[in-house]
Amino acid sequence: MLPESAFKVLEILERAEGALSGETISNELGITRSAVWKHINELRMMGYDISSSQKEGYRLSQPSAKLLPYEIHKKLRTQFIGKKMRYFENTPSTIWVGKQLCSEGDVDKMNGLVIIAEEQTGGVGRMGRAWVSPSGGIWITIVLKPCIPIDHIFMVTMAGSIAVARAIRKEFNLGALIKWPNDIFIGNKKVAGLLLELSAESDVVHHCLLSIGIDVNVPVTNFAPDLRDQITSICAEVGHKVDRAAFLARLLKEFESHLLLIESGEYDTIIQEWKSISCTLENRVQIRTLKNSFEGEAVDIDEFGALIIKKDNGKLERVIAGDCYHQ
């Protein structure tokens, strides 16, 4: 990450109405002109478009398109989610980083920490499946120490799913819907997925890691040809690249507000909102679990996040985990 002094140079350039000389910046910060030049180059390497001329000096022409904590924090309006962040240009997996941090540090102090990667080289989805995570997406893991009974911990995923769908709807006016158990769809194409990993023993939750992956500014041409009719991205839906930092700030605010509802015991509020933006309920589905496969109509979701299926023989089946295919 960039040193704090580099961001102080950036703040000065952001406030300026025109170009500033290196001498002006060095005098304001009490550093040498060569240090200013060094920081300008560091900012350029992080994606900031800064022009320079001997006559006028430095001018910030374009902010960075990278998902930098500095850019997110300018727009973030949360109490604790995202106040602390860890940023990586690339990493095998943000959830792997989260596991490492939780094993080495005080999880109580990490509650709400958001781990961000521009690119994951070994992203993991449900059932250990590979999750393709190219640059341009949002690939994050949130470290949580929630005050939620262990039998309601699935609601963390519900809160995350609602937050992603609501943020997409509010930010881009796209009709995002939740597909049980943890995917977000626009139309009949997947745009995002979530994964919750839990560390607990008996009835005590030590911590959990909520990973969220969203195809934001990822061109559809980056997807494998056989996946292009199944996956979409936000930029493909709106027709242009979008501000990822502003979108993530909104998403984290949405997630925090729904998480606080769960922690205050407002379970029914969360369940009803999830139902209102579900594309699974009232549809005929095929369920595949580790033990069996069956079909029926998805009629409800219970307070523990289980999907209720009315099978063709009229019997109700409660599905806690499995793959759900719309028919």
Rank of each mutant, 00 (worst) to 15 (best):
M127Y: 14
L174F: 08
D183V: 01
G175Y: 10
I138S: 08
L144E: 11
Q120G: 07
A176P: 06
I168W: 11
I142D: 03
G193P: 01
K190Q: 05
G123W: 14
H206C: 00
V205H: 05
V143L: 09
W180G: 00
A200D: 02
E201M: 08
V124D: 03
I162E: 09
P134A: 13
A200L: 01
E118M: 03
A159K: 07
K190C: 08
T157R: 01
S135D: 11
E171G: 03
G187V: 02
I138T: 10
L177C: 13
S202Y: 09
G125E: 10
P149E: 15
V132N: 15
R166N: 15
K145M: 01
R129A: 03
G187D: 06
G175P: 12
P181W: 01
K145V: 03
W139E: 04
L195K: 10
T141H: 13
V164Y: 12
H152E: 05
L195W: 06
G122W: 08
V143T: 02
H207D: 08
V191F: 12
G123I: 03
I178T: 10
P134V: 10
D183K: 07
S135H: 12
W180C: 00
S199N: 14
G123S: 12
N173P: 02
G193Y: 07
L177V: 14
M155K: 14
D203V: 04
M155A: 14
G125I: 00
A176Q: 04
G136S: 10
N173Q: 12
H207P: 02
G125W: 06
G123L: 09
M127V: 02
M158E: 14
F154M: 02
S133W: 13
C147D: 14
A200I: 02
G160W: 11
K170T: 11
Q120P: 10
I168S: 08
N188S: 13
W139C: 02
N182W: 09
H207I: 00
A167C: 01
W131K: 05
V191T: 15
I138C: 09
A163D: 02
K179T: 01
A192K: 06
K145N: 11
G123P: 13
I142A: 08
P181A: 07
I140T: 14
T157E: 08
L177H: 13
S135C: 10
A163S: 12
M155R: 15
I153S: 09
A167Y: 06
K145H: 06
G125P: 04
K170E: 15
I184C: 02
A159P: 06
F185E: 01
C147Y: 13
P134Y: 13
P149V: 03
K179I: 00
A192H: 10
F154I: 00
L174W: 05
I140N: 10
G137E: 02
M155W: 14
I186K: 11
P134C: 11
R169H: 12
A165H: 11
A176N: 06
F154W: 08
I150W: 13
I150C: 07
A117V: 02
I186Q: 10
D183G: 03
